[in-house]
Design a protein around this nucleic acid. Structure first.
Length: 579
DNA sequence: TTAGGGTTAG
């Protein structure tokens, strides 16, 4: 071991500490905890000590040798002199070793103190960054715990870390906790900033509590904080979302009057207003905001173009939406997944699935990766258009590319096959869904029950009701209506009534479809007293009654040639329709 | 990415 090694290792430690390397910190900590003797001068110093120990041993040996020699020489004064020299050497060696050990201990103590200070400082940063990362990841419980731990140790994170916490809590709809932290900030510091209040305001807007958001907005000034453009944009957005366009416009104009850029529009605020107008059906007003931006020379961007494209898709002008897509391309804005999804969605809604698939091809050729939303819209569109096999190909493509769709996507395909009475393919998709780790839900089972009934296996539908319980699923109104309908069509009136009782017991209220199915079976069985009683119950239930129950009864009474009953029902029908 | 705008919608 060379002494130089000691120096270079020390320098490395110091440099790394100065650089704030956490790895180094852990390394140092490890060394501290595993014995300071090993720190800085470990092996080299020990080697030095060993060498010196060797020297001592050698001296002692020499001393012993010398004694032997002197004995052999038989000279006492020389022996005494040699002994003195030997002890002097030993004293010097011991003193040197003790001094060396003392200096080592001092260096180690000072290093320990320094490391302790560094640990506090670096841990402070490290913990703050961990809190921020946890907040971005939505792990608010862990983030709060770490924050609380820091506060307990009298380490107060900076305002930005606090803002991360507040924003994370607000996004999680944990406004009470967020407010509690803000109160703590006002009490102990760091003082909240505009971003702190913006997070709170946005949190209330997300919870649809615009009144509370406006209230928070009005308290900012009490704490010496002025709202900024972001604050206003959050509120304008919330007001638009609630359909309060006039209030949003007032705020927009108030913002313009305070604008330092000579009263010109702000891109984001104008985009929010434009989107709000499109979504509230006011295309002219939306375009007025767009024209104003262009007139004032505001640099529009991809998002504002996407808002226009979406706006025209909403007003069923897909042709104009295309035109704006081309315009944005000409200006150098490359359409993104939002632009393409907007077009795909509009085309699917119009039933133009081939055009939607064409747009899908274009986007993939342009290097824009379709997302879950793209596939969901195309698969739903194809299933509505009864192109189930084509939809299934898209599902396969998703799976090949490791995109596992949500249950809805599987369900629409199962439902699609079921509506064709193709129980084999419907069941196959359900099995595949489970194999890919996606749990079936109530829609899955309702689609499977429908598939069994549609394919004529009415008795096979009932075990599915038991099977869904294994997944912790409770049959809903749709399930009972399907099962009651199936029992009625088989003339199994007792089974139908049992299912009716079961649904009432489980707190599932029958609707007009349940009543219609039961009326049908009573009529088929000639149980007209029961039918009349049930019909009276239906009219008294307060449910919106459509034409079906009336037609079922009228048809039956016609067959029975009880025309006064038919006329009476017709009168009642007219009264109901007028309501 | 300390806070603000755009795509679905059983």
């Amino acid at each position: 071991m060379q002494p130089l090694l000691i120096v270079s290792e020390e320098s490395q430690f110091l440099l790394r500490i100065l650089n704030g390397s956490f790895q180094t910190l852990d390394f140092i900590k490890d060394r501290v905890f595993h014995g300071f003797a090993d720190l800085f001068c470990s092996k080299a110093d020990l080697d030095v000590i060993d060498i010196r120990q060797d020297n001592v041993v050698q001296c002692v040996n020499r001393e012993e040798q010398g004694s032997k020699d002197s004995l052999s020489k038989g000279n006492d004064s020389d022996q005494q002199e040699d002994s003195r020299v030997g002890f002097n050497v030993l004293d010097a060696m011991l003193k040197h070793s003790l001094d060396r050990l003392k200096s080592m201990r001092e260096r180690i103590s000072s290093a320990e103190a320094g490391i302790h200070n560094c640990t506090l400082e670096i841990n402070f940063n490290k913990d703050a960054y961990v809190i921020r990362a946890m907040c971005l990841d939505g792990k608010m419980g862990a983030a709060l715990s770490l924050w609380f731990n820091m506060i307990q140790n009298s380490i107060v994170p900076d305002v930005i870390t606090h803002n991360y916490l507040i924003n994370g809590l607000c996004k999680n709809c944990e406004l009470e906790k967020a407010e509690w932290i803000v109160r703590g900030m006002l009490y102990r510091g760091p003082s909240p900033t505009c971003a702190t209040y913006n997070s709170l305001i946005r949190g209330y807007c997300l919870m649809n509590d615009v009144d509370k958001a406006l209230n928070t907005f009005s308290t900012m000034a009490n704490h010496g904080i002025l709202p900024n453009r972001v604050t206003c944009n959050i509120l304008v957005h919330a007001l638009c979302k609630k359909g309060l366009l006039e209030e949003a416009k007032k705020l927009f104009h108030k913002l313009l009057s305070k604008n330092h850029n000579g009263g010109s529009s702000d891109l984001i605020t104008s985009t929010i207003m434009m989107d709000g107008c499109f979504k509230n059906g006011d295309t002219d007003q939306a375009l007025a905001f767009w024209e104003r931006m262009l007139k004032e020379g505001v640099q529009v961007d991809k998002v504002s173009y996407n808002v226009v494209v979406h706006g025209f898709c909403l007003s069923h002008d897909v042709g104009i939406a295309y035109k704006y897509c081309c315009e944005m391309l000409k200006l150098g804005f490359v359409p993104d997944v939002y632009s393409y999804n907007t077009l795909v969605g509009a085309l699917c809604k119009k039933g133009k699935t081939s055009d939607a698939c064409y747009i899908y091809d274009v986007m993939t050729r342009m290097g824009v990766i379709p997302d879950q939303i793209t596939y969901k819209m195309i698969i739903q569109g194809l299933c509505i258009n009864r192109e189930i096999d084509r939809a299934n190909c898209f599902l396969d493509y998703m799976l090949e590319n490791s995109i596992i769709p949500e249950p809805l996507v599987w369900n629409v395909i199962i439902d699609g096959y079921g509506k064709f009475g193709d129980i084999q393919k419907a069941s196959y998709i359900r099995d595949k869904m489970v194999a890919f780790g996606v749990l079936p839900n109530i829609y899955t089972y309702n689609a499977l029950i429908y598939a069994q009934i549609k394919s004529g296996n009415i008795l096979a539908a009932q075990p599915l009701e038991k099977e869904m319980l294994l997944y912790g699923l409770t049959p809903d109104l749709v399930t009972y209506n399907l099962l009651i309908g199936a029992a009625c069509s088989l003339g199994l009136i007792h089974s139908a009534l049992q299912l009716h009782d079961e649904m009432l017991r489980k707190g599932c209220q029958p609707d007009v479809i349940t009543y219609s199915e039961l009326l049908k079976v009573f009529c088929l069985q000639g149980m007209m007293k029961e039918a009349d009683k049930l019909f009276g119950k239906l009219l008294a239930s307060g449910l919106a009654v459509d034409h079906v129950p009336f037609l079922i009864l009228m048809k039956r009474y016609c067959r029975l040639r009880e025309f006064d009953k038919v006329f009476d029902l017709y009168q009642k029908w007219l009264v109901t329709m007028r309501r």
